[in-house]
Structures are given as C-alpha cells and as structure tokens.
Design a protein around this nucleic acid. Sequence first.
DNA 1: TCTGGGGTCCTTTTCCTT
DNA 2: TCTGAAGGAAAAGGACCC
Length: 401
Amino acid sequence: MTANMRRIAHLDMDAFFASVELLRYPQLKGLPVVIGGGRRKPDDALLQQYGADALKHIPVAAFPRLKDYVGRGVITTATYPARQFGVGSAMGMMKAARLCPEAIVLPVDFEEIRRFSRAFKDTIQEIAPVMEDRGVDEVYIDFTEVPGGQREGGRSLARLIQRSIHDRTGLTCSIGVAPNKLIAKMASEFNKPQGISIVYEADLKTLIWPLACRKINGIGPKADAKLQQLGIHTIGELAACDKAWLVEQFGPATGAWMHEAAWGRDERPVVTHSEPVSMSRETTFERDLHAVRDKAELSALFTQLCERVAEDLQRKGYRGRTIGIKLRFDNFKSVTRDLTLEEATDHARTIRQAAGQALKRVPLTRRLRLLGVRVGSLVKAGEEMAAPEQADGQAQQAPLL
DNA sequence: TCTGGGGTCCTTTTCCTT
DNA sequence: TCTGAAGGAAAAGGACCC
C-alpha cells in the first residue's frame, strides 16, 4: 500500500454576499447589484412596505440605485452583471456610481451572511473534517486522508462537496485541488463560477508559470509594482530569478518565500484551530471630526469603541495586555499608538483609560476621519497568570545598577 | 470623488539593559 | 561618566487578506 498523495483543496463561494441577497430577492437575478455601504439598516423601509413573505414580489423599480447613494463606503461584492461595468470589490461607492449609476445597492446583512457561512462549512466538515477557516466565504480542506479524496486527483470529492453545499444552501462555489494550499488557492480561481480545477505537481510550468505574479496569494499591489519595475511579470519569470538576488531585493523572508512560491513549493498544513491574536473595533465618521471642536462627540465615540471591544472580549472569553488606538486623518494617513499593561484586562474602563493615555501621544492637528481601539496579546480569560513571571525577572534585574 | 472593518504577519525603529 | 556593541521587547508602520 502506497502513501496517499497530498491533496489540498481551496473552496471559494461564488460572489457570496450578492448570492445570499439573490436568494432573498430572486427578481434581481441577471441585474447589476452591488452589496456594500453598510450604514443603512437592512431594507427596513422595504420590509415595512411589503412584509417579510412578500420580499420576492417587491418590484425591481422599488430598490435603491447606486446613483442615489449618499455617504462614505466601499463595495463588498458585485454581481457578475455589475462586474461587466467595471464595478468590483473594494471600489468606492462614488466611483462605482459613475460606472454604473443604475446598479441596485443593498446593504450587507451580516447575520444572514454568518448563517450561510456556518451552513456551508458544516456541510463540508460532515464530508471532510480537516478544514481551515479563511473567512466567511473561503476554506482550505485536506483531502489527503478522506475516503475517495484521491480519486481523479480530488475531482469526485470536490463534486460531492459542491453538490452538497448547493443542496443545503442554494449557493454555488468554486474548488481548486492541488498538492498544497498555495496552488489550490490559485486553482480555485481558474473556472469561476461553479468551477472545479485539478492541478498536479507536473502542471506547474503549463498552468502556473504563465500567470501574473499578482495571482500568488501574498503578493499584493506593492510587491507586484516592484516586481514589474524589475521586469518580472509572470510567475515563470519569478521562478527564473536567482534566489539570492530576490533576497537582496525583498529581504530574507519575503525574497526566499517568493522564490519558493514561484516553484509551487508550500508545506503549510491545513490548520483546523487557531487562537485570536487581537480584537478591535474601529469606525469611520460620517464627516471628519475636529479634535477640539468635536471633542464631546469624539470622546463619546471613543468610549463606545472601548465598550464594544470589551464586550467582544468578554463574550468570547479573552483578555489582553496590549491596548492600542488607531487614527486616520482627513488626508488618509494613519497612525497607531499602543501600550502594554501589567495585567490582561477585558474591562471597558481599563481599556478606555489606557487608550486615552495612548491618544495623548498623538498630536491632533488635522481633522480625523477614523478612530479605532484594539486589544492585543490575548490570553484566554482565567489563564492569564503566566505573564507576570517574565515581568518580575526584568524588574528585579533593574535595581542592580 | 475618493478610499469599510476586522484581522494577521512582517519589518523597522526605538528603547532598555548588560 | 561616557561610549559602543549587542540583544530583546515593545512600539510603530505597513502590506496583505477576506
């Protein structure tokens, strides 16, 4: 009996947020719809007017249009018809409105999204238990030891999962199966929507090397721009680079990693459980606020953010020692300040006090567009006794001088 | 015309201590 | 008392992802 070939799948829900909305409003199928904005309550006016059962009979003309949208915000997802206009994720609402003024705008309904997210993940785990959560609409799955996971390189198991998710939720997804997470992630994009792509180690040169470097998960706009400038456009060109030279250009960690990635090498395991490192809350104001003139409003919002982080910590059972703030000014420049407490906390007042200290270290000359509060160095509540030992050791050494 | 919110991870800078 | 090297921890910034 030979050892199983390592087979890792990446599954990505197709236009997740928009698809969930289309289940509720089937009359919008085929129309350009964007999800985002998020400041409005989900369709309160429509619900009142037509009632929950009648949602699918709301006339298309009754839905709000992008051209009428006011306020700050970006688009979370766009349906495929909307994408034809060049509208896409992370695009500002104002820009999108110019590209496709007649697109229908719906706010995100997070509760509904989480419900569907749980449903599709439960479905997967009933079939293949080794699953890594990568956000609301994405997971990695280890097919290696799953019965049938080797058949057709993973295609038949991928088909089963696709069908099961569709039966349970009415939603479609795309799956890539490959020797590792890096390649699987790229493969899941090959045939969107509703695609299955199988990639073997031997396919590296034909299927992966012709792709743009930007397709590697971890090469973002900055790294890509630098690569372009160096005359490197495809993954194949990246693979042809000398590793030592890449290290010179990008530093030891990134340079070496890029070289490995270009050669399709990635040994990272599928991680089924992880502990959170930090929790934060932040908010962008409706209008930019002035530190002095809007002091009362700012202070109230600041306290609210601390309370919400404290609630999150308590609800999830964590405490943290590092308290941080984040400010974004009207020119979009951001700064952070943080400080570390003696003891981990989950109290709003303690957090507010520490965050207030941190805030004092920032000169507030410009107007603010965003304020955030973060708690890091988390420990499970009740397990935070380990930390003081180190602090003690340091403190005792100091007086020797 | 601008550009959300919640995260992780890495690099660089700064500070403290020996 | 000053100086410099070296190493660690904390702080700050930034890239990236969903």
